[in-house]
Design a binder for these strands. Structure first.
Lengths: 210, 210
DNA sequence: CATACAACCGGACTGTAGTCCTATTAACCG
DNA sequence: CGGTTAATAGGACTACAGTCCGGTTGTATG
């Protein structure tokens, strides 16, 4: 599967493991990720402390924090693989999510696909986005989604501030927001609402009338 | 100024001080709020610990936490007054924010007015919304804004899920979201983007064409 | 006014995130 | 293969949020 169809900037935001890593560092990295995954599975993400992860991985606390920054970074590393899967489907998968469909259609497809990703990893994403202040907006993944939507919205609505609209469309996709809305609506209703929002945003207030 | 024009449900969400409070409790409540306001002014909201507030107010930590729950509750109490001001302007102030204007116009007026409130109290609001998980969605104020928007959107777009759209419109008004967007856009641009979003949401994807 | 009761007060206590410093260890080069 | 250097490992340490409980102070009642 070639990724040459997507913009070069998006590729740069896909992250991945560090370029050159010392042997012991790589070993510990794996041990930590395995320990974290196991503990999260057993006790739920929020209930697991960083101390517990360090102990289970048989690694010092300093190591844990230096490698992953904080809890949100650790969780982000765990999410990395599946995140990249969605990113690859956007860059070079079949339309309408991948290239080939119209911009408005691709926006709707992205919102639907991201919602599925969200419902599948809600606990991890919520911790990843809220463990430290502004964490959601700092990580590369957010910049990837934002850039992707910005490009599509600039095409669909050339007269609007596409970059802002992209942020606005990502706002209700925040894990904490979805968690709160889940208290009164089920996933299907949320997806329907998001689809309506995406339709309104891509169409614009006066579209279809020209 | 009469508040009889607004729905009764909205009034119930306005909160206010506890009904009957012991004299010493009231005294401590005032001391805490004054100390917190002073410390926040001097050092910024995020830099002030609850210990510091308790010490400055000459009150025990237990008192502080029992009265306000946690840091987000303390900050919410500080915001209460100005929050109620905006709420009263919505319930019984002049249009288009208050009753009298069309639903779509009132939605746009609300978004603009809330954005101003947000920019004026961004630090306090950010702490209030993020100090504890899901804090934003638990407090009465959020329910007030949400109910207000739901009523208006149900009128403007009877075929849509107005309650969900109300959540979606409040999502980019989260303090943390606005803080992140402020790194690349100024308040005027954000207000313009929000106005465009409100217009798109109130109009709907196919409006103006019938 | 005295008594009983409930609410309140305050600080000691616990658990956690995150920092810092020193010995260790891997990679590189002669 | 041995020496040099810079990154890494790990645990002791700090600061903070939030809890708990014994003592105290208002408030209602006879």
């Amino acid at each position: 599967m070639s990724t040459s169809e997507g913009p070069r900037e998006l590729l740069a935001l896909m992250g991945g493991p560090p370029a050159r890593e010392r042997a012991d560092a790589a070993r510990n990295r794996r041990k930590v990720l395995e320990a974290a995954a196991a503990l999260f599975r057993e006790h739920g993400v929020e209930a697991v402390s960083m101390d517990a992860v360090a102990a289970r991985a048989e690694v010092g606390k300093g190591t844990l924090f230096r490698r992953f920054g904080d809890k949100s970074g650790l969780v982000a590393a765990l999410l990395d693989e599946q995140e990249r899967d969605l990113q690859e489907r956007i860059l070079s998968g079949p339309p309408p999510l991948g290239p080939g469909a119209g911009a408005a259609e691709r926006v709707r497809a992205f919102v639907a696909a991201y919602a599925d990703y969200l419902f599948g990893h809600l606990d991890l994403l919520r911790v990843s986005e809220t463990a430290s202040a502004g964490a959601r907006y700092r990580i590369g993944a957010y910049r990837f989604w934002h850039l992707h939507l910005s490009i599509l919205l600039a095409e669909a609505r050339p007269e609007a501030d596409a970059g802002y609209l992209a942020h606005a469309l990502l706002a209700p996709l925040a894990a904490e927001h979805v968690t709160a809305v889940l208290r009164e609506r089920d996933p299907a209703q949320i997806k329907a609402g998001l689809a309506g929002l995406a339709a309104a945003v891509t169409a614009g207030p006066v579209s279809g009338c020209s």
